[in-house]
């Protein structure tokens, strides 16, 4: 399900679709710079069982990641949001979905600097 179009393997950087859009570069960089902070918020909300906060964060990431050229992150965020919203997911599923999103956030990159 989580195959990255232009990113072979499951560990390489996830590059923004707008990597070669000069208009967007600065904005995408700023967004990526702020991702670690968001990851931390996601994890601490989960650890302290603040599910409403987790829902809010995943909702915002869903919208934002798409806009900044990271559709795979957006999908992962939507997945997590869906689980939280429906109340159908058990804690294990929620954690797995969150980890998936966290992993992708950590790999997000504004441009093809290091990968191939």
């Amino acid at each position: 399900m989580q195959d990255q179009q232009s990113n072979p393997g499951n560990s390489g950087p996830v590059v923004s679709e707008f990597a070669d859009d000069p208009d967007m570069l600065e904005l995408v960089e700023m967004f990526v710079d702020e991702l670690p902070q968001r990851v931390q918020s996601l994890q601490s909300s989960f650890e302290s069982q603040m599910m409403d906060e987790l829902l809010r964060l995943s909702h915002q990431l869903k919208g934002a990641c798409g806009g900044y050229g990271f559709p795979s992150l957006s999908e992962a965020a939507a997945e997590l949001e869906g689980l939280l919203k429906s109340g159908a997911g058990d804690p294990g599923q929620i954690e797995a979905a969150m980890n998936e999103l966290v992993d992708l956030c950590r790999r997000a990159s504004p441009g093809p600097g290091q990968g191939d």
Partner: peptide, 15 residues
């Protein structure tokens, strides 16, 4: 009007 500040920034640049 959008709850995400990321969208505000994005639209400002895009438009």
């Amino acid at each position: 009007i959008d709850d995400s500040v990321d969208i505000h920034r994005l639209l400002k640049i895009r438009l």
